[in-house]
Design a protein around this nucleic acid. Structure first.
Lengths: 227, 227
DNA sequence: CATCATAAGCTTACGACGTAAGGAGATCTC
DNA sequence: GAGATCTCCTTACGTCGTAAGCTTATGATG
């Protein structure tokens, strides 16, 4: 009686905004993986037809790029004031945490082609932190490459694991161990049995070990001056 | 006259084999990127309808998993006899080269869920090399995680660069530098101008620097004994 | 308040995609 | 030489991103 026409069950809302589209897309991808994010489902979630999304987004690639930039905006920037090593450690941990919250972002490599403002700012601040600490331009580039390769790669390995919680890990490792021909892959079997299946194991805990290894290495580069 | 019926322009060949399907799929993905690999195109390339591929492959995921395993089979295994550091250095370089030849493999993370035999053998030999060198099980796990995260991440960054050759790099960097608001991202601008645009720059050259940083760090872990 | 351009939504449609179902012909086994 | 099996084909379905064009709500201008 009140509503004259149109879709019945559409949640009444003001107009859509790009931000709303973006954040819903991120939620969807977080929940069901990037392959579950389709324009139609995203539209559904927003109470709108798929084609209406194109009023706020040029195409799907534009959407994905913006999503990646949103992830970068969640990362704590290194502060120039705090000592390069601690502040770089913090931002690295924050970076990994962001990729862990949004695993789909790790594989969205096309965003390298045209990075958004948050991505650029992030990179600029990281390089700036190295430069201010006394790294030469070349050394800063090497440090940036080494450190971020590690972070990205770690996130990718983490994402590719078929388990998340400790219980899942244990269950999965049990199964894999049982399937694994132990005499053909003895070291893999040993590692699974004696390390992965130890109570309290969590792959994520490996992160700071490699991180500190690299940071210590970078510090050595720095103090050994010339390069 | 000779041929009684059927498709005219089909290259006469014996029956298809899984190996043939696999290697053609890899060639296709190498040439046009993973998104250009569709069942229909792969069929075309082999002179066969898309559906015929399902005689040799369970589904596309099976195909992709097998492709990743094929990439792993290209990597030089570390030899137990040679000293862990040099042999691990060799296999790391070989690993990166393989991912560089087949960039699509870097993103195919689902293969972590059920790795093929070449992948398992590779992992087993890597872990075995650490163990034989005196790493404890836990240290071997840490070393494996740190090193392979770096390699994977490096490959991913390399893949995401919008250029390959030195000329492309220079051209692209010029453009990006021109577009970049230099006062907003001063360190990025500096790095581009003074490092990337230097003649002879090639991002791939960064790889051994980070690699040696990690290997040296692992060696220090090893010699500092307990952990 | 009336008009009307613009923006934001909807409908329909197209050409890809992966693959289910089932049929036809070749090849192998006994 | 008969039957089973394997390989390939045709057809079809549901889903995807998105082009084209329509309708309606908004908000500025007279």
């Amino acid at each position: 009686m009140a509503k004259p026409a149109g879709k019945a069950d559409r949640t009444p809302r003001g107009r859509l905004s790009r931000e709303e589209v973006l954040s819903t897309a991120i939620t969807l991808a977080d929940k069901g993986g990037i392959e579950s994010l389709t324009m139609r489902r995203l539209g559904d979630e927003l109470g709108v037809e798929a084609m209406s999304l194109y009023n706020h987004v040029a195409n799907k690639e534009d959407l994905l790029n913006a999503m990646v930039d949103a992830v970068f905006s969640e990362i704590d920037l290194p502060s120039h004031s705090e000592g390069w090593k601690t502040s770089m450690r913090k931002r690295s941990i924050s970076f990994r945490a962001a990729l862990s919250r949004h695993p789909w972002a790790t594989g969205l490599t096309d965003s390298g082609t045209n990075p958004g403002p948050a991505t650029l700012r992030h990179h600029d601040r990281v390089i700036g932190t190295f430069r201010n600490a006394g790294f030469s331009v070349a050394m800063a580039a090497h440090a940036f490459s080494a450190l971020d390769s590690y972070i990205y790669g770690f996130a990718m390995q983490e994402k590719s694991l078929p388990f998340t919680t400790e219980e899942e890990t244990a269950a999965m490792a049990q199964i894999m161990l049982a399937q694994l021909p132990a005499n053909e892959y003895p070291y893999l079997a040993e590692l699974t049995a004696d390390h992965v299946l130890k109570p309290g194991y969590n792959y994520g805990d490996e992160f700071p070990l490699g991180l500190d290894l690299i940071l210590d290495g970078l510090e050595r580069w720095l103090t050994s001056a010339a390069r």
